[in-house]
Structures are given as C-alpha cells and as structure tokens.
Nucleic acid binder design. Structure first.
Length: 267
DNA sequence: ATGGCTCGCGGAGCGAGA
C-alpha cells in the first residue's frame, strides 16, 4: 500500500490554481501541503480540490501574506494550528491521518524568510526567523505516543553545503548563514527527525527546490537552494521509496519559484 | 552576477519574498 505526500510553496494558490490542478491531475499524490497560499480561509479554492477527489481540506490562511493548507484524499483528524512566536501569523497547520495501520501526524510549516540583513539586532525579520527556529526545537517526532510524524514545508533554510549553488558565496546570505543552518540541524537532532531528502540523495550531490525569479535564465544559471523539506519520525524511514523534486515545474506557465517535492512510501 | 522579478493590495507604487 503506497503513500505519497507533496509539499509545495505555491506563492498564491488562487493565481496559480491552473498549475496546481495540472500537478494533481498528473501526479495524484495522496496529500498536498501548500505554503504561501496568500488568502484567507474563506477565499481558499476548496471546490477545485474537491472536484479532483481531495475532499479533506484544512486551511490556516490570512489576508495577503503567508498561509498554509493541507488537502488530502485521506481523512484528516485532530487538526491543530500552532502560533509560533505569538505573532498571529498563519505559518503552521497539522493533522493526523491513517496509513497502513499507523496514525501519522503531518505538520505543514512556512518558516519566516528573514529579510536581507543577517543581523537579529538590526533586522527584526531575521530575529523573528531565529526565534521561530528556536521554538521548533521543542517539536519532537515522538511527541504523541503511538503516533508517527511527518514534517514538511518551506523552512527557508538550506542547511548543507550542497543545498546551495555556492556554499562560500552564501555564508552571509539569509537562508544559509551558520546561525540558521546550525539552528535547523538542531531542530532535526533534538526532535529526533529524519531528513528524508538527504536519506535518498547523498550530501555530496547538489539538491535544490527553489530558483529565484530574478535570474534571466533560471535553468542556465541553476543557482538554486534547498529550502523545502520533508522529515519523518525514524519508524517511517524504512518505508521511504523515493523523493521526487519536480524541477520541470519551475518552467511551467507563470510558475512558483519553488517546485513540488514528493515523498513516496510503501508499507 | 544576486537581486535583475513576482506577488497582494488597490487602483500608484510599496512591502515582501529569499
């Protein structure tokens, strides 16, 4: 019995509904986790997802910015929205689904980008990002007895050297500064998470999920970053078949700057 | 050679993304 879960920062779900539909029709993941939906709950285009068989929808949106949503062919229960940093931002939603006799809590995150200046004293957005990551360190993969866990989302940090196009040139660029990358690796180690993308793609290999809108030719420049992640509790590791990064989606009509990342499991 | 583009909001141009 297979299970597939996709994470995708969509950068406005209403504007990009055509490519979301294209993706779901072509790849049919069991569950799709979206970030940066940029709409309020009542504006989420739920009908379009229901028509495709995704009847189980949970949304944590807000006006204009941020926002996350999880749409699923499998029933979702015990949904929860955690307000990290007490900012009132819509950056997290989770729920439990059942697969192969297991109960699995699926977390969907949108971590703050952090602005330009990597100095928390000078840049409140960077301070917010660091506080957010600090709070995530308390999130354990075994938080609920008898419940496995999967954590996906746009974490806005590329932790390893080959998660960016140039480690040296990125060390002072927000998303790859040591305080961020060390912080994220501490979230992984303290929480007891498995980085499923790096379980299947060796750290010696470049791996990106995001390419800037500003490059003249994103594919030729190939200056990407691995900002999107899929983690799990250790018990699910042996069930991972593969990870698919759909790079071609960056070249679709009016694309997001992030591409869908899918984890495929078998029982 | 990173910031050059792309969003929402609102009805011009700005804040935000990363």
């Amino acid at each position: 019995m297979a299970l597939s879960i996709t994470t995708w920062n969509i950068n406005s779900v209403r504007l990009r509904l055509p490519i979301v539909v294209q993706f779901l029709e072509q790849f049919r993941p069991d569950i799709l986790c979206l970030q940066e939906i940029k709409c309020q709950n009542e504006e989420f285009p739920a009908d379009a997802f229901r028509e495709l068989g995704y009847d189980n929808i949970i949304v944590h949106g807000q006006k204009g910015y941020h926002g996350v949503a999880t749409v699923s062919k499998l029933p979702l229960s015990e949904d929860h929205r955690q307000d990290y940093c007490g900012m009132g931002d819509a950056r997290h939603i989770s729920a439990i689904f059942e697969w192969a006799g297991r109960r699995i809590r699926l977390h969907n995150f949108y971590v703050p980008a952090g602005g330009d200046e990597p100095d928390p004293a000078a840049n409140p957005k960077f301070a917010h990002k660091l506080s957010f990551v600090d709070e995530m360190k308390a999130l354990r993969a075994d938080a609920e007895p008898g419940v496995s866990a999967i954590l996906v989302g746009d974490l806005n940090i590329a932790p390893f050297e080959n998660d960016v196009w140039s480690h040296k040139q990125m060390l002072k660029i927000v998303s790859h500064t040591p305080v961020e990358t060390e912080g994220l690796l501490e979230v992984v180690s303290r929480g007891g998470w498995l980085d499923l993308m790096r379980e299947t793609v060796d750290p010696s290999q470049k791996l990106y999920t995001w390419w800037s809108y500003r490059a003249k030719d994103w594919a030729a420049a190939d200056r990407g970053r691995r900002l999107d992640h899929i983690w799990s509790s250790p018990d699910l590791g042996p069930h991972l078949d593969r990870i698919e990064v759909l790079k071609e989606a960056r070249g679709w009509d009016r694309p997001s700057d992030h591409v869908p990342v899918t984890a495929r499991f078998s029982a």
